[in-house]
């Protein structure tokens, strides 16, 4: 088959795969952004057992490869006789989402912790002296200063996440790497070609380009104060 004939077929398949990549990306963000906050509050808790527990969880998750975590989360329940994920692509997606959300919320929690602790103590004290409640101080005073501090490191993580979604290939989630690889083994009459796999890089690159611009704009928006 000529390249010009292959291209539309490959393009179509990669698009479908990339849609799954995007889905995993957004679901991970949606889950990990709030869960990370919970973990960071937990690890800063004055209740020692809770803070130790959170720190141990963060240590384990950050200390082991995401690929292994994906495998454990996807296969362990079945091996123990509880097939909680269900079969097929939706089961794989569910398991991948759980693994990614857990993994990324641990990284986010550390970034949040840095952001929260980076806000000078005087800000909270000023709020207290002015009769504000702790939650008013958090939402009206500290939060935006914390967001400003965490946008650059978060941007880094978010861009890494786009590329990390490819790890879900290990449990055969039909994301873009899986789609590209399918033309090696044989898919829709095309077999033994590797360029579709190489071509997936373009998708990541363009999407990360868009994200870089958007996150840069957010950073700029927060430059009105110091």
């Amino acid at each position: 088959m000529e390249f010009t004939e292959q291209f539309p077929i490959v393009f179509q398949a990669l698009n479908v795969g990339f849609l799954q990549t995007l889905k995993l990306f957004f679901v991970t963000l949606l889950g990990a952004i709030p869960l990370g906050l919970v973990i960071s509050f937990g690890s800063m808790s004055r209740f020692k057992p809770l803070s130790y527990l959170m720190k141990i969880i963060v240590w384990i998750i950050r200390g082991t490869p995401l690929m292994i975590q994906l495998l454990i989360i996807y296969f362990m329940p079945g091996l123990m006789g509880h097939n909680i994920w269900g079969g097929g692509e939706s089961g794989r997606f569910l398991a991948a989402s759980v693994a990614f959300i857990f993994n990324y919320s641990c990284y986010f929690s550390e970034i949040y912790r840095g952001g929260i602790q980076g806000v000078p103590k005087g800000q909270e004290e000023a709020g207290l002296v002015l009769g504000m409640t702790r939650s008013q101080i958090f939402f009206k005073v500290t939060l935006l200063q914390m967001i400003k501090r965490i946008v650059p490191p978060m941007s880094n993580e978010i861009i890494t996440l786009v590329k990390d979604t490819s790890l879900a290939r290990i449990i055969s989630l039909q994301e873009i790497i899986w789609a590209g690889q399918s033309f090696l083994k044989g898919n829709q009459g095309i077999a033994g070609v590797i360029w579709p796999l190489f071509f997936t890089a373009v998708y990541y690159l363009i999407f990360n380009g868009i994200l870089t611009v958007l996150l840069g704009q957010l950073e700029k928006k927060l430059e009105y104060f110091r």
Binding site: G122, Q123, A126, V129, G131, T133, L144, Q145, Y224, F225
Partner: peptide, 20 residues
């Protein structure tokens, strides 16, 4: 304590204005 604080005002050495 929150209500009682309002009897006092405090001006800090380092201002502690809210930057945003």
């Amino acid at each position: 304590i929150r209500r009682k604080r309002l009897h006092f005002g405090l001006v800090f050495q380092s201002f502690n204005l809210f930057p945003q």
